[in-house]
Every structure is written in C-alpha cells, then in structure tokens.
C-alpha cells in the first residue's frame, strides 16, 4: 500500500436538510428505542470497534475508520433459526419460525459498505425470495456518515465509489466542525425516519469537515479486470498460485466482507428435537465444493481464492449488475497472511 494514498481531501458542498447536534445523538437513540426499535452503531467490544446494538450515545465509538465487522450481520445473521422440529418413533413434527425483524437503525455505516446492499438484495430475491433477509432489510434504515479519515486499506475510489456515495443509504450524514452532523434524507424510508424523529434534529447551517478521499490504487483498470476474467483461459494461469498460495483458508476475509453471502443449513439438537439453522459459510473452505466422489473441483487454495475474486469481479457484476467489491478494505485488514486483493486487481489489469 502506498501511504501517499492517505493524503487525499475532498471539498464538497452538501445539500443537507437538517443537522444533528453531538449532544442530541443520545436523544435520537432514545427516540428510536422508545418506539421499540434497535439502534445499531459502531461501538467498542473486546477493544475493537464493531457494529452492535447500543442503548446510549456514550457507547457509540468516535474516531473509527470503519467498524471491524460489516453491518450485514444485522440483516443476514451469522446464524439464525429457520425451523424447529421434533421426532418420535413414527413421525416428524416441523414448524417454520417467523423472522425476527425488529425496526432497526444502522448508524455510522460508511458509504462503501452501504453499496453492498444492492447485491445482497438481488441475491436474496433471485428466483426465490428469502424473507429472512428481505423483511429485515425492509425494516432497516441505513444511516451512513461520509468519511473524514481513512487508512491504507481503503480503496473505495478504485471501485467507483467515494465518501460521497449514497448507494444503499437511506440517510447520509457529514461530520461538522462542532462534532455534530449535517443530515440528508435520501430515500422515502430515510425521509420518513427523519420526519418521525423530527424533534431530535435542528435546522441551520453548520460547517462540515472535509471528506477524506483515498487515492485510487495505481495500475488498476476495472474494465480490464472484468475482460480478463471473462475469458476462462486464466483458470489455469500459474499467477493464481503465485499471488494467493500463502492463503491459509481461514475464511476471515469472507466473514468480514459486506458483500459475501454464502450460507449452509445444518441442524442442531438431540435425537428428539432441535432446530434448523442457516449459518454463514465460506468459499475459502476446502469442503465447500468437495464432491461425494471425493473429487474436489477446487482442491487447492488458489482455486478457492480464484473463485472469491471471480465472484467479486465477474459473477456479481455480470449476473446482478452490482458491485461484488465495494473497496472497504476489511479483507486486507483482517487477513493473517497479508493477502491484498488490490494486488490481484493490479495483476488482472495487465
């Protein structure tokens, strides 16, 4: 990573319709919670800033770049019960469960990660409608905050996004010099949210802090990447091994990624009763594509990595016309062997 990329600053004029004073964030949380909603925001847990349900403004982290996890887990939980069953000698009793979809506000998401929602929605409504996802998303208001800082791993601008992007967001905030926010409602859902909690907001001008804009990763050409991936001749290219052999297949990159959405269904319980669960899975695991014959079409880790890269830069854009990678950089930060997806992007831009 090039440290020079950290230096970018953007000056923009915002078209905010309201402001939120720093001291009023607590009122907003109270107002949401008083109506039975849950307020999800970046907060400290085990010394890391992660999205979690909070009760007060004191819990909400400041000065973070990006929460460690993606907020997708509030729409598509790591594990959830989808049915319950009981068994006796002659029969099986089966009962589907209702989705637990409380009114939710996701506060403090970054513009990059909000852009992942389009792809998730398309996948979960493709062919069959997964109401465990759609009902939650329908009840969620996503409030993004334009970034005023970033780190070496941020690369939103390389995938045609920026701290000003509003894709997937319902409400867009900008930090102000007095530690508050300017507020702009974007979608009907967002505007309705602002009206509902109108008493918390104020009007009037406020000086916005300049946005941080990561420089684009040099020598990356997304069109070229997409073209190169289309021709499956690259499948056997030794460059995959060269770039990704060090991957230990831990799957961390897929779990923190806001666009990854593979899952597996398993049962838990006793021989008499139990529950069926939908759990996150990862294409980085060796059993993911293992056949009953013992043959594995993705036997080696570079082949699994190739799939992950293909999914982001070929399958998603082609199949769903949506971004498979939003440049949040989480996979780069979390990887124990320092595998950097932008280096693979550079290689396939050649």
């Amino acid at each position: 990573m090039n440290p020079a990329r950290l230096s970018g600053r953007m000056k923009t004029v915002s078209m905010a319709d309201r402001t939120l004073k720093k001291e009023d964030l607590g009122k907003l949380i109270d107002s949401v919670r008083a109506k039975g909603g849950r307020f999800v925001a970046p907060a400290l847990l085990a010394r890391q800033v992660v999205f979690r349900s909070v009760k007060s403004a004191e819990e909400v982290a400041t000065g973070y770049i990006l929460a460690r996890n993606s907020f997708k887990e509030f729409l598509f939980p790591q594990t959830e019960v989808i049915a319950e069953f009981s068994m006796n000698k002659d029969s099986v009793g089966l009962k589907g469960v209702e989705v637990d979809a409380p009114e939710t506000v996701v506060f403090g998401a970054r513009p990059c990660e909000a852009a992942s929602l389009k792809g998730l929605r398309t996948l979960f409504t493709w062919d069959f409608v997964d109401e465990f996802y759609t009902k939650r998303e329908d009840k969620t208001v996503v409030i993004t905050v334009g970034c005023t800082s970033g780190d070496e791993a941020c690369f939103c601008t390389t995938v045609d996004l920026s701290p000003e992007s509003t894709e997937g967001a319902d409400v867009y905030l900008r930090e102000t010099e007095d530690n508050g926010y300017t507020v702009k409602g974007l979608t009907e859902k967002g505007k309705k949210f602002l009206d509902t909690h109108d008493a918390v907001f104020t009007s009037g001008a406020a000086k916005e802090r300049p946005l941080f804009k990561p420089e684009t990763v040099p020598a990356v050409d997304l069109k070229r990447v997409s073209e190169r991936l289309k021709d499956r001749a690259h499948y056997d290219d030794p460059v995959w091994a060269k770039l990704t052999m060090k991957c230990i297949g831990c799957g961390a990159c897929t779990f923190v990624c806001p666009t990854c959405r593979c899952f597996d269904i398993t049962d838990e319980g006793t021989a008499f009763e139990g529950e069926r669960r939908k759990n996150w899975d990862s294409c980085q695991y060796d059993a993911f594509t293992l056949h009953a014959s013992g043959h594995n079409p993705r036997e080696h880790q570079p082949q699994r990595w190739r799939n992950r890269f293909m999914c982001k830069f070929n399958f998603y854009p082609e199949k769903f016309s949506s971004k498979g990678c939003v440049g949040c950089g989480r996979c780069i930060r979390v990887c124990p062997v320092r595998l950097d997806i932008t280096e693979v992007m550079q290689e396939f831009s050649k």
């Binding site: 049915a83 089966l94 589907g96």
Partner: peptide, 8 residues
C-alpha cells in the same frame, strides 16, 4: 411468512 427453507 413465506419460509423458503421449510422442507416438505
């Protein structure tokens, strides 16, 4: 709710 994961 339409639960697409519920088997027959």
């Amino acid at each position: 709710m339409d639960n697409i994961y519920l088997p027959y």
